[in-house]
Design a binder for these strands. Structure first.
Length: 111
DNA sequence: ACTCTGACTATTT
DNA sequence: CAAATAGCCAGAG
């Protein structure tokens, strides 16, 4: 499934990828953007996540930046909800960064 | 139609 | 190695 220039479904396609992230794994904005065929539009992915607040089936906490840092934690209610959600899935987080991120990372292109 | 903003990333200072 | 810069492009006002 490659990039389909359907701007109307941009958010939808981002959601589609995010919901595929396995429990206990995480992915990055860049990886999602790349999968969508717009590797240079990672900002749009993060932005789509902002709009994903209304989508209860979108695990936005499993999406971090390329270094495994919880850059979007301030967009979650509370101060450390994002970290708590990740830790509840067995992902160790310290100082807003995922530990052993390399092994927790899940690439949508690996499907 | 134009300007501003942003949960990013890669490159350059 | 920290900080600034430049691409990127869809939405909101």
């Amino acid at each position: 499934m490659k990039y389909q220039p359907n701007t109307l479904n941009f958010f939808e396609r981002v959601y589609q990828v995010v919901v595929l992230v396995p429990y206990g794994r995480v992915t990055t904005y860049g990886a999602i953007a790349k999968y969508l065929g717009a590797s240079k539009s990672s900002r749009m992915v993060g932005w789509a996540m902002n709009a994903a607040h209304t989508r209860l089936d979108v695990p936005a906490h499993r999406v971090v930046n390329r270094l495994g840092i919880l850059t979007g934690k301030h967009h979650f209610p509370g101060t450390n909800l994002m970290q708590q959600l990740l830790e509840s899935e067995g992902i160790d987080v310290e100082n807003d960064q995922i530990l052993d991120f390399k092994t927790k990372f899940w690439d949508p292109e690996s499907l």
